[in-house]
Simulated scan of single mutants.
Amino acid sequence: MKLEDLEISIEKTDRRKTVSIFIERDGSVKVLAPVTASDEKVEAAIKSKEYQIFSKIAKWKELNQGKVNRDFVNGQSFLYLGRNYRLKLIENQDVPLKISGGFFHLDKKYLAKADKVFKDFYREKALTKIQERLKLIEEKFTNKPKAIKVLELQNRWASWTPKNGLNFHWKCIMAPVSVLDYIIIHEMVHLKHPNHSTEFWNELDKKMPDFREHENWLKRNGVKMSL
């Protein structure tokens, strides 16, 4: 395989000073570059990092061997706050989906739209838990988020907006609380340092000295956080 065979998306933004290359969770290659960077400069940067790109793709393929394909059947496991809960199909339940007695209970009449029911459950629980954790975390920060949303963010766990809002993927609620805290703190630091600059990583290290442990957990287990 050659660079020419890869699907590479390029995004130019005024929030970047250097060219950075990322392998997204779906295995695609994304390039973030300054708006002032010429196409030739971006192409040269990609070419200079050819070895790193293919090394990261190989690592992505290795990690994706652990991907879980879930069916909505009795006994199937689903993640919630870092723990696996097996599914039980129930008759005439008071709500479409809930966790009870160490199991996910899904009302059978919602089976045809179980995917949406699970996503709605995760979104609701994620917003509540993130708001709860944020009350404890934001005491460490001067800059506070003006809005919190839980969305479908494709290949990102979370993102910040120029208006100081924070967006989180609904899948975040599948991670352990300590990892969720890392995701929140990572985005809180972005309110002060928009880019992944040296200042950003230094600030993150101050706010969460063991952040690498949680970052690595996401790299190892992120592929399992899906429906």
Rank of each mutant, 00 (worst) to 15 (best):
V73L: 08
D14N: 10
E203S: 12
P194K: 10
W157Y: 08
Q52N: 08
K47D: 01
K59L: 14
I53Q: 09
E124T: 02
A37Y: 01
V177M: 13
Y85G: 01
F103A: 06
E215V: 00
D210V: 07
K171C: 13
A158T: 08
P194L: 06
D14A: 09
T18E: 00
I185T: 11
R133Q: 12
D205R: 14
K207D: 00
K41S: 09
K163Y: 15
N143K: 14
I46A: 03
T18M: 04
P209I: 01
K17V: 02
F200P: 06
W170I: 11
G27C: 00
N216C: 06
R86Y: 03
N167Q: 15
F118I: 00
R83K: 14
K108P: 00
V19K: 04
F103N: 10
K224T: 10
I130H: 01
R16H: 07
P34C: 05
S48M: 06
F22G: 03
I130V: 14
D5S: 10
S20Q: 06
S159K: 14
V68W: 05
N216A: 11
D181I: 09
Q131S: 14
E138K: 15
I137P: 07
E138R: 08
E199S: 12
N64L: 05
N221A: 02
V177T: 15
K163I: 15
F54T: 02
D94Q: 15
V42Y: 04
H214Q: 14
H169T: 15
K125I: 03
V189L: 04
I137F: 08
K108H: 03
K47Q: 11
N69M: 12
E11Y: 05
A33H: 03
Q93N: 15
R156W: 07
I173D: 12
N64H: 11
M1W: 03
R15S: 09
L191Y: 01
L3W: 00
K129A: 11
L87H: 03
Y80V: 05
E215K: 13
K140I: 08
K207E: 11
Q93R: 09
S226A: 13
K129F: 04
E62R: 13
V150L: 14
E7L: 12
L97M: 05
P162W: 12
Q52W: 13
W157A: 13
I21K: 00
K67A: 12
T161G: 12
K108W: 01
M208I: 10
D5R: 01
R83S: 13
A37L: 00
I148C: 07
N74G: 05
T142S: 11
K129N: 10
G101Y: 08
K88E: 11
K61H: 08
K109E: 13
T128D: 13
Q93Y: 13
V189M: 08
L97A: 04
I23H: 05
F78K: 07
N164G: 12
N69I: 08
F141M: 01
A44D: 12
K88Y: 03
S159P: 13
V35H: 06
E199M: 07
I8P: 05
E203G: 04
E215F: 07
G75C: 04
K41V: 00
D71A: 15
I23V: 05
L134S: 09
K116W: 02
T161C: 14
K30R: 11
F78C: 04
N155E: 12
L63A: 10
Q154Y: 15
R220V: 12
T128N: 13
L79C: 04
I99F: 02
N84W: 07
K12A: 05
D26F: 02
